[in-house]
Design a protein around this nucleic acid. Structure first.
Lengths: 237, 237
DNA sequence: GCAAAAGTGTTGTGTCTACACCCATGT
DNA sequence: ACATGGGTGTAGACACAACACTTTTGC
């Protein structure tokens, strides 16, 4: 298997990751400054060549491990594979992009050539990485609406206001804490922990703490329309 | 560019397509019977090796052109890239899978080693192709609910009953013609052509003919929830 | 008491399913 | 006339956004 029996020319293959986190109330992406040509000095997505015996997911986890502690990745999913033959000026190279998420309460140690950048205000990126970041953001936004993916942005415990700020940063628009709470509780995505956050120095009622019921991705708004026929589902007996 | 400057070992790369069509009122997939080892004689997805200077999409279109007339593909989108190092017994091989759709009124000429199979009753497939077919079906089902993707399953003109049968076959459950019509008209996905289908031999009111307003994929049910704030959108003035 | 922050009650709206009913055609 | 299939009217269920109001804290 390590000796391909094909006589077809094969492209180089790299894995890339759009790693997103809400930092300072803003959605940010982890970028890495290229040390070498092509695009020397430009910011780019972390990643690297696929090694033998690695799956694509293994590969991107391995490359990311050099930047951030992989245990800190709360979610990782494949985005798409890019194949424009001119996407790299030097070689025939395919790239499989992943979306990775990091909870907001974590501040990983980073090497000197690596830093967070606001997705709303990115510098020019190497290759086609700019459009990949935007694709990752769109995927995140869509899944926040119809899945429980919020778990990947949030700490283990949080108040509704804190969660609201995370959603607002990721979605790019204001979110009402009132309605967010009701939607996520109705869908049984959140559950109360029973504990409370202490009031801040300026006073105010202490907020109750919640947690996500599960850290596995689940679709919570299946069948937005064209449901299968049948009597209405019982309202959670 | 045709001379990779990398010294990394590179995997073989193939493109595959799950081509789906509603035939005889049932969702079916286009399969091809392997002439050679490995998996000689087994049914498998059409596709083949990626050639230099091809994008992945070019590649799968080219391979499909040997089976069906590509102009008959009403939709083509990337599904995922598979990379398990053991997925092919002979070589290190990645596969990028696509979903292709063919309108129900077309009956392409097929070579002798190629045929349609009901997705609900597939034979054992080569490699990991069985799970890819199911992933394609799930993608189709999801997008039928929140996009106008129905255009890719339907002929240019159709009655609501005919469209209902297509949706039912693809979704795998009964669909109400009444509600289907109202949902798709409200969303302005369908428009009446003004023409009618003649009655069948057994009588019955002739059905009005409709068409999809566009054959570009559009999201018609954006923001199922967590809409951006603001006054309610005007009800289509 | 007053400001600040959290949380609940309530109303209105839009979208969907279900089902009854009416319409147009062939025999 | 009556069977067959197409289409409309309408009622009820539900989920959501918006906003007023109440509760709990610090000062």
């Amino acid at each position: 298997m390590s000796e391909p029996t094909t006589r077809h020319p094969t492209p180089a293959h790299v894995t890339l990751a759009v790693v997103l986190q809400v930092r300072d109330g803003v959605l940010q992406a982890l970028l890495w400054q290229r040390a070498r040509e092509p695009f020397k000095g430009r910011w780019s997505l972390p990643g690297g060549y696929l090694a033998e015996r690695d799956t694509l997911e293994d590969s991107i986890r391995r490359h990311l491990a050099e930047k951030v502690d992989v245990r800190e990745l709360s979610h990782l999913e494949q985005l798409e594979t890019l194949s424009d033959p001119t996407r790299s000026p030097r070689e025939w190279q395919l790239a499989t992009a992943y979306l990775g998420l990091v909870p907001s309460d974590i501040d990983p140690e980073l090497p000197g050539d690596t830093d967070w950048h606001r997705v709303d205000d990115l510098p020019p990126l190497a290759f086609d990485h700019g459009s990949i970041v935007l694709a990752g953001r769109e995927r995140l936004r869509a899944k926040l609406s119809y899945t429980n993916l919020g778990f990947a942005l949030a700490p283990d415990e949080f108040t509704i206001s804190e969660l609201r700020d995370l959603y607002a940063a990721a979605l790019g628009h204001d979110v009402s804490a009132t309605n967010l709470q009701r939607v996520l509780l109705r869908r049984e995505v959140l559950e109360p922990t029973g504990r409370q956050r202490a009031s801040g120095p300026t006073g105010g009622r202490p907020g109750s703490l919640f947690r996500f019921r599960t850290s596995e991705l689940e679709i919570t708004d299946q069948f937005a329309v064209l449901r299968p026929p049948g009597p209405a589902r019982l309202p959670v007996a």
